[in-house]
């Protein structure tokens, strides 16, 4: 069953077509990886899904509900959260606060509750804290909950970003190069973690460069090159796909070098 659907999605920046008529379905409960050479438009796809960019043409929908035209801040509430290619935490806040803010869309308290501190608000706060600590435990960060986010190591910061995205219990989690900058051991731990997240019922859609990781955990892989989807299939299928090999290694012909 398709959870997230990209239907003929195109975006142009001036003369550049960054994403070109992409059709893609993310199925409920799967781990799907989007790969492609640098500048292929992978992160742009994520930015389109989270409404940071609006597609020039085409439609994106989650569970049949259209996402196009919806402001970014409502996307999380609909069940899509993400991490960023360059880590975007709230650096001067504590680890716990970072995760609590991640659950913002699940809270209801407004100004009145903040100023009156009625029991209902305190219950919500307690629940939020409990969920946040659970998310931190899940990603093995609970020991650091009082630290400032900026003082964490690189790998920990990546994990904190995932914890922040998980705490609102999304339907689908978008991971933008989660393994970037990690050492081999950390990557193994990360793979394990991604699988465990999926096992809790959250669909995973990730962009990644590290082929070992991608081939290791993805059930399906989609390949983007110059904004176009050139292949889609199981890791095995994609690995032997001619177009993919050409995109990554070049066809050896002069033509492909000057495609730009």
């Amino acid at each position: 069953m398709s959870l997230l659907t990209l239907d003929n999605v195109t975006i142009r920046f001036g003369g550049l077509t960054a994403v070109d008529t992409v059709n893609l379905e993310v199925k409920q409960g799967e781990i799907l990886a989007l790969i492609g050479p640098n500048g292929a438009g992978k992160s742009t796809v994520f930015n389109l899904i989270t409404s940071i960019y609006q597609p020039t043409e085409g439609k994106i929908s989650l569970d049949g509900k259209a996402l196009t035209g919806i402001p970014t801040h409502k996307i999380a509430d609909m069940g899509i959260t993400r991490t960023f290619q360059t880590i975007r935490l709230f650096p001067e806040l504590s680890v716990l606060d970072n995760v609590k803010i991640g659950a913002h869309c699940r809270g209801k308290a407004g100004l009145l509750q903040a100023f009156t501190r009625l029991p209902s608000m305190k219950r919500e706060e307690a629940e939020m804290e409990e969920n946040a600590i659970k998310a931190l435990e899940f990603l093995d960060l609970d020991a650091k909950k009082e630290d400032m986010a900026k003082n964490l190591s690189y790998g920990e910061q990546r994990r904190l970003e995932i914890a922040r995205a998980l705490v609102s219990k999304p339907k689908i989690l978008l991971l933008d190069e989660p393994a970037a900058g990690m050492n081999p051991q950390e990557k193994v731990v990360l793979m394990e973690m991604i699988r465990r997240i999926r096992d809790t019922g959250i669909t995973i859609f990730l962009v990644e460069h590290d082929m070992k990781l991608v081939m290791g955990i993805s059930e399906r892989i989609a390949v983007l090159d110059y904004g176009k989807l050139i292949a889609e299939g199981t890791p095995l299928e994609v690995r032997s796909n001619k177009a993919v090999i050409e995109a990554y290694l070049g066809s050896g012909k002069f033509k492909s070098r000057i495609r730009r």
């Binding site: 801040h73 960023f84 650096p91 913002h104």
Partner: peptide, 16 residues
């Protein structure tokens, strides 16, 4: 506080 720290990350977690 989140808006002060990072606006884009804020809207990604659902903050208006």
């Amino acid at each position: 506080l989140a808006i002060r720290e990072d606006e884009i990350a804020s809207s990604a977690v659902g903050i208006n």
